[in-house]
Amino acid sequence: MKFSDFVASDAIRSELASTDKEGVIRELIGSLVEAGKLPKDEQENIVQAVLKREELGSTGIGRGIAVPHTKHPSVESPVGTVGVSHTGVDFASLDTEPVQLFFMLISPPDKLNEHLQALENISKQLQDETFCRFLKQAKTSADVKQVLEEADNNQFA
C-alpha cells in the first residue's frame, strides 16, 4: 500500500500549531474533517478513540516519530494524514524524545489487513533516515506531499 492510497494530501499539516499531545491529535483529526475525509458529526468521537488508544501505550515509537491511530466505522478504507511540528511535542514516547513527525491513521474495523498494510508502508519508509530528515525539514504541505510521492516511487527505503 502506497502513501497515495491513504494519505489525504489536503489534510497534510506542515506546521502544526499545537504544542501538546491532545492538541496535535485534535488538529490532525480536524484537518481530515476539513478535507472531507472524516464526517464532522463523528469528529469528537474519533478524537476520543485516538486518545483512548494512546492510553494503552503511546504510539510515539522513538526517533521523533508517532503514529497515532484508531479503527473507526466511519471510514471504508484507511484514511491518514501527516503532521510536522518543527518545535517538537512531548508525546510520552518510548525514548522520551519530543515528536516532530506524526502519521495519523484511521482504519475501518472490518479491514484488519488494510490497516496492517498501511502501517507496514509507513514503518518501512520511516526506517529510512533520509525520508525522516526530509519530512522534518518540510516547510509546506507541498514539500511533504513531494517527499511522500518520492517514497511511493521507491526513492528511499
Binding site: I61, L112, L116, Q117, L119, E120, I122, S123, K124, L126
Partner: peptide, 13 residues
C-alpha cells in the same frame, strides 16, 4: 527490538 522493524513484516493472521 525495533517496533518499526517488526511493523514492516506486515504479518497478518
Amino acid at each position: 527490538k525495533s517496533v518499526l522493524g517488526i511493523l514492516t513484516l506486515g504479518a497478518a493472521q
